[in-house]
């Protein structure tokens, strides 16, 4: 696409959108949002970036191969489930850590870790598909 405005605005827009997607991911436990929605927003940011800046630029921006990101996400999600085994609970039982300096935080938990895994999977897989299609022309 050859819109100058779009080309200029894209890096900022994309940066902001990715930031927003992480925000949506992290607040998801208490208000609408979460790993799936955050991941989709993140993926759409990179999709915009790919269309405007090209595949190579997206690859640079993501640092890692998108499929690797998805794989790492799946691994993190699985790992968060294993944690409960250490405490004698069944696989994938949520575990919380209430640090003494902020006992009301209720945030440091395997459940949030799991959601981060979901986020990475969604971003990685969708960007992989879009990049693959874009490249195959």
């Amino acid at each position: 696409m050859n819109s100058l405005i779009l080309k200029t605005a894209t890096p900022f827009l994309v940066g902001l959108t990715v930031l927003f997607s992480i925000y949506v991911l992290l607040r998801g436990h208490n208000v609408p949002g979460g790993g799936f929605i955050g991941g989709l927003i993140g993926a759409s940011a990179f999709a915009t970036y790919t269309i405007n800046e090209g595949v190579a630029a997206t690859r640079r921006a993501m640092v890692f191969h998108p499929v690797s990101i998805a794989g790492v996400g799946l691994f993190i999600a699985g790992l968060s489930g294993v944690a409960s085994l250490l405490f004698g609970d069944a696989f994938m039982t949520g575990q919380w850590w209430f640090p003494s300096f902020a006992p009301d935080l209720k945030y440091l938990s395997t459940v949030v870790l799991f959601d981060i895994g979901v986020y990475l999977v969604v971003v990685g897989a969708i960007v992989a598909i879009i990049i693959g299609l874009e490249e195959s022309t």
Binding site: F36, L40, V122, A125, I126, I129, G132, L133
Partner: peptide
């Protein structure tokens, strides 16, 4: 439905590429 949406999207993408 939330997971169904994401899954059916993945399936749809895959089918599109398969068709192509």
């Amino acid at each position: 439905i939330l997971t169904a949406i994401v899954i059916s999207f993945s399936l749809f993408s895959f089918l599109l590429v398969l068709a192509y």
